[in-house]
Structures are given as structure tokens and as C-alpha cells.
Design a protein around this nucleic acid. Structure first.
Lengths: 337, 337
DNA sequence: CTGAAAGCGCTTACAG
DNA sequence: CTGAAAGCGCTTACAG
């Protein structure tokens, strides 16, 4: 390559990397670029990395890629942000044990490849003890707070998202708003329920008999809604979209039309449910894409020294969960049922 | 590291890689391993790769990671097979244009990092012209045949999967089996319809008035089923699970109980639909996980010279699509409706 | 059984 | 404005 352009490898490097503070005569540079083009020359990133101690690769360690509905969107957000920054994203989907010892292994794989930084994405945990070796490099957490308080993290604001649903419902005139809760003991359960309670309290509404916990699936939603319907709610807010599917079924069985007789709201925006229901389901989205993108952007800043982990780690970044309005919500009709 | 064990870097390399045809005295080896352990020494894979011209990394280029429901399972299958073989999987999710020029760019990113091989995963295309630069390294295709016939590929046997549904229905006594088809012009449309027709023909059954094309979503399935129901089918086989959701709605509206009055079968096993429906939906799974795993296993064989692309490329590997039986199918009741 | 030396393909002071 | 030389951290003939 250098021979082809009649210059040294040094000059090739300067030209192709536009090394700062280095002037190369324009026609020399042109000659280099032409030769590179002709030969299809591409610098070997491995060699570059060895020399610069930077791989321009970041590792994403994720649990439950297939089980959890939205891990795909975290990956997508991270991937696109990485592409934008000319970083390569390597992914390992491990069964995370949330055990600092065991989970160190997949991270080691990234370290061995000189990853510039690491993203550790968990779902359903609010605080974790990160694998010890993760702090060898810049790192960020998605979906969990670092127990040690040294790794920056990003979380969805499920509580506020949940409260905003109640607000919306109240604004439309609902006063008897029921919550089909999850019986599972995960942070999302607490956050969404708490948000509902926040909203009801803010509006000065009673929640008596209006909260029923059940399995976090369609059958649970069906059972919970059937119970709830005995207490004449005008709206049922469900812990998740799958429960909302059950709520539709329960409403149909009681001869109630959505949204005229009963408004229903879900949570998750889990494709393809909301668009596949009759009528389509108003629900709350989790900012998965945004969290993935945030992780890469933040990691990049950490790597380049444009940000400091210590400053960020103090309080997790919290991303809001907006409501997606579709057709399952209306003002309560005056006739009672 | 070498100093710590009191040996040369050569010996360290021999011990840690158990270089073939090289004997190292056992206590020397033990000393090396002990030192490595103590120091937490890990060989730099970049340096190794530079020297050996192998990165032990393979690249997966995929389109529509988030849009298509099951890309996650392809990634999971590929990832787990890669881990099993000590390979790292790097992923780029690009908008594939199926244009050999444009799609060359993301592949170049892998080549620059000296990927040992490349997986190109597309969905919904039966034949593609692969980017020219892909053949620089061993490569395999998922979900599409290579127009040039040089790259090995793997495809789901949707046609046979579809035919097997009809067979099952016939075995249970159904004779008026309707098909809610997709109006979209993609290979899956043709394969699934053809399989239905194969099955009906094999059983000597008429399909007159029993095939209605519609949009491939819940609303399309609803409309198609409403039409179909005028021709008294005892079973409706839907192009996909979303259409099946619509079929449930249509059946409910006509007062038909599933499966007693009408059997319904879907296709895709798209979570969370099948388990969230009342009753749960019998459907056909696409072998996404298996295709991902096949791709890595095959690529690995190609890289190691254990397989030859020329031999494999002749005919694509076809993986079967099994039926997952749930509760939406029963023998037709004798009473007519 | 073990080590010295070369070299993988780059970048980066440094010199001119 | 350009190049010679060193060195990143490994592996691999080769020598002993």
C-alpha cells in the first residue's frame, strides 16, 4: 500500500487517520487516497487496537434476550448509537446469575478482547452487585442501580409513568379507577402499583376494593378484572399488556364494550398486543431503545474522558415512560352498569 | 508475567495454549499457571489475533432486529452456539437494502476487525444477491437463498409446516378447512398458502371459497374469518398468529366457541399471543433458534476447513417448522352452525 | 524441555 | 512536509 503510493507507512497512517497537528501536502495525500481506493486497502483494526490500546468495541452483556419482550429494543438502541459513533457492539447473552463471581466470566471475554467499555443490561432488578471485574473499564448499567454506587445506570421511571395514566384517566372524568396488579415480587410490580396509588391520592380518590393482584399474564388479568368488575370501576389499569388482554376478555364476557362501558390501559407496549386488540390498546412504553442509546452515549463519554463515572453514579438517570394513546380509553358514560 | 514465573514468554504461550507437539516439564507448567492465576493474567486477544490472523470473532449482520418478532431467537441461537465454541459474536443490525453495494458497508466493518466469518440474516426473502465483499471470508445466509449459489444457507420449511397443519386437522376429522391468507407478496405468503393447498389436495378436499387473502394482522384476520364463516368451515388456519387473534374475535362475534364450534390454528408462535388467547392457540413455530445455531456451527466448520462451501451451497439446508399443540383445535362437532 | 528472535500491521514520538 | 525506528503483546519456526 505504502509502496503503491510511493510514500512511507507513516504517511499513509497520517493521511487515512487525518492525524491532528500533522500537515501532509495535498497531492501526497491525494496519491495515498487514490492508492487505498484502488487496492481496496483497509487498515487492520486489530493492529491498530494493539498499538493504541483501544479497540473501538464495546461489549453489551444482557440477560434474557429472548425471554424478555423488549431486550431487542435495548440492543437496537445501543447498536444504532454505536454505529453513529463508529463503535462496534459485541453482544453476549448470558444467563446472568446476579452473582458477582459467576457473571465475571462473560465480562472477562470482553476484557480479553480489549473492549473499551462494558454495558451490563439486566431487567427486573432495582439494585445489583456488579461483577468485580467490570470496573476494570468504563461501565454502565441498564435497568438496575449499582449497589456499590460507583457505576452509572439508567432506569425507566415506571412509577411516574403509572401515575400519569391515572392523571389522564382522572382528567377524562374517571373516578373509579381500578388497578389489576401483579402478584410477582419484582421492582416493576412495586413501581407501577405505587404510581397508581400516587395518582389516586393526588386526585383524592379512594382505592378501596380497586386493587387486585394476580398473575402477570392474560389469565391473571382476566381473573383480576372479573373481581374488579364487581366494584363498578369505569376504568381498569393493568400492570401489563398481557393482563390487559385478559381484561378485554372479562369485559366482553360481562357484556361491557370497551371503551364506552369500560376504559382499559396497559403497560409495556408489548408488540403485537396493543395493535392487535379490538379496540387497540392505550398503554405505556418503556424507554428501552432510549436506554440502550443512553448507555452507549454515556459509555462513549466515559471512555473519552468527557464524563466522570463518579459524578454520574450518584443518582441513576431516569427516563420517562410515555403513554401511547390508542382506542381503549374514553370518558366514562353516565349510564351505570 | 513471564518474569513472575521465571520463564520466557515463549513458554508461557506454550503452557497457556497447550501448543501441540510441545512438551513442557510439568512443574514449569504448574509454575506458569500459578503465576497467571496470581496476577490474573489474561492473554490479549488482539495481539493473538494479529499474529495468528484469526480473531475468533464472527459477525452477524441482521435486518429488522426489532421489527421482526423473532430475530431475537436467531441471535440467541447464534450466540449460544458461539459461546459453546469459544467464539465471540459481534452483531450489526443494519437496514439491509438487499443491494450488494449498500450492504457492503456493514460487512466491511466486520472485515476490518478481521472477523473469521460472517452470517447474513435476512427475513422474508427467498433469494438474494449477497454483497460482493462477503465472500472474502467464509459466510452463510439465514432466511434466504444465495442467487449466485455459492454461499450456504438455511431456510425454514414453511410449506411443509403448513401442510402438516392441514394433515393434523384432516386426521381429526375436519373436511372444511379454511385458510385466512396474507395479501402481502412475500415468500412466506406463498409457502404457507402452497402448503395449505398441498395438504388439501393430498386429502382430496376442495378449497373452493375457503381461501381469503387479507392484511397480515389482527384486523385482516378478523375480516377474512368473517368472510370465511359464511362458507361453514369447521377450522380456520391463519397465515399468522396476529390474524388468528382476529379470527378469535370474529368467531366470538358470531357466537362460535373455540374449539368446539371452530378450530383455529396460527403460524409463527409469536409470543405472547398463543398463551394469551382464550383458549390458547395451536400454532406452528419457525426454527429461528435452530437457524441461528446452524449458522454458527456451519460457519465454524467452514472456517476450520471441516466443511466446504461449494458442497453446502448446492441446496439450502431446510429446517422443519413443528406444530405446537395448545387448546384451539378439536374434532369438529357434529351439529352444524 | 526451554528461550532468543522475528514478525503480525499498525501508530507515534522524534528527527530532519 | 515526510520517513526511520521503536514498540503494542502475542505466536511460531528454529536452535540448542
Amino acid at each position: 500500500m505504502a509502496a503503491r503510493a510511493g510514500v512511507s507507512q507513516t504517511t499513509v497512517s497520517h493521511v487515512l487517520n487525518s492525524t491532528p497537528h500533522t500537515r501532509v501536502k495535498e497531492d501526497t495525500a491525494a496519491r495515498v487516497r487514490a492508492a487505498a481506493e484502488e487496492l481496496g486497502y483497509r487498515p487492520n483494526r486489530l493492529a491498530r487496537g494493539l498499538r493504541t490500546h483501544a479497540s473501538d468495541m464495546i461489549g453489551l452483556l444482557t440477560e434474557e434476550i429472548a425471554t424478555t419482550p423488549h431486550a431487542g429494543r435495548i440492543i437496537l438502541g445501543a447498536q444504532q448509537e454505536a454505529s453513529r459513533r463508529n463503535l462496534t457492539l459485541a453482544i453476549i447473552n448470558s444467563e446472568l446469575h446476579l452473582d458477582p463471581e459467576v457473571d465475571a466470566a462473560p465480562i472477562q471475554a470482553f476484557l480479553d478482547r480489549q473492549a473499551d467499555g462494558i454495558i451490563y443490561a439486566t431487567v427486573y432488578h432495582d439494585e445489583i452487585i456488579a461483577p468485580e471485574n467490570i470496573s476494570t473499564r468504563p461501565a454502565v448499567l441498564i435497568g438496575a442501580r449499582d449497589a456499590a454506587g460507583v457505576i452509572p445506570s439508567v432506569l425507566p421511571d415506571e412509577r411516574a409513568g403509572s401515575a400519569s395514566v391515572v392523571e389522564m384517566l382522572v382528567r377524562m372524568g374517571h373516578r373509579r379507577i381500578a388497578f389489576a396488579a401483579s402478584a410477582e415480587d419484582v421492582p416493576a410490580t412495586r413501581g407501577r402499583l405505587q404510581g397508581y396509588l400516587d395518582g389516586m391520592q393526588a386526585a383524592g380518590l379512594s382505592t378501596e376494593n380497586l386493587v387486585v393482584p394476580a398473575a402477570a399474564d392474560a389469565r391473571g388479568g382476566y381473573a383480576a378484572t372479573l373481581d374488579l368488575l364487581d366494584h363498578a370501576p369505569t376504568a381498569v389499569f393493568c400492570y401489563n399488556d398481557r393482563m390487559a388482554m385478559g381484561a378485554y376478555r372479562a369485559a366482553g364476557q360481562r357484556g361491557l364494550t370497551i371503551p364506552t362501558d369500560l376504559s382499559v390501559v396497559g403497560f409495556d407496549d408489548q408488540a403485537p398486543i396493543p395493535d392487535s386488540l379490538f379496540p387497540t390498546l392505550t398503554t405505556v412504553v418503556l424507554p428501552h431503545y432510549e436506554m440502550g442509546a443512553w448507555a452507549v452515549a454515556t459509555l462513549s463519554a466515559l471512555i473519552d474522558g468527557r464524563a466522570e463515572a463518579g459524578l454520574l453514579a450518584g443518582h441513576p438517570t431516569v427516563l420517562s415512560c410515555p403513554i401511547i394513546e390508542r382506542d381503549s380509553v374514553a370518558s366514562p358514560s353516565t349510564r351505570s352498569h
